[in-house]
């Protein structure tokens, strides 16, 4: 079986493994995922790469009890919009249980986990999730 979306997964590795994003030297704003053009400054923008610390807080959250295909074993699980310490927001799974403590404003940090497996013979996709600290 050949994998699907191999190139997409491969392109996302810097973002998914190491939270690499973009920083505009002109307006100072940080972006995740990586952007080539600053939406604030347009042609005046000076975009460069930046690595986020992996620390953040829960901005909003929900619990998934009817999971999509491939996530059946993990349900029920928490999904949150995490606001990184450097500003950008991203969506990620919250791991390691303690779901009663998953609340808006709760501090979290990045961990490295399996995101998805393409069946028993396909690719394993790894990347960031977050845990409460």
């Amino acid at each position: 079986m050949t994998g699907t979306g191999l190139a997409l997964t491969w392109r996302k590795i810097p973002e998914r493994y190491n939270l690499l994003g973009s920083h505009c030297d002109n307006c100072g704003e940080n972006f995740f995922p990586i952007r080539n053009i600053c939406p604030n400054c347009r042609r005046k923008g000076r975009m460069g790469g930046t690595k986020f610390s992996g620390k953040g807080v829960i901005y909003s959250h929900t619990f998934v009890t009817s999971p999509p295909t491939g996530f059946e074993l993990e349900a029920p699980y928490a999904i949150a919009i995490v606001q990184l310490a450097e500003g950008p927001k991203l969506t990620a799974q919250i791991v390691d249980g303690d779901y009663e403590k998953v609340k808006i404003g709760a501090p979290v940090e990045m961990v490295f986990r399996k995101i998805q497996e393409d069946g028993k013979e396909g690719l394993i996709h790894y990347g960031f999730k977050f845990k409460l600290i």
Partner: peptide, 16 residues
């Protein structure tokens, strides 16, 4: 290990 942990994810955390 949690359902989404394997020898690679454990190794990454230790390596970091």
């Amino acid at each position: 290990p949690d359902i989404d942990e394997d020898a690679a994810t454990l190794a990454v955390e230790a390596a970091r």
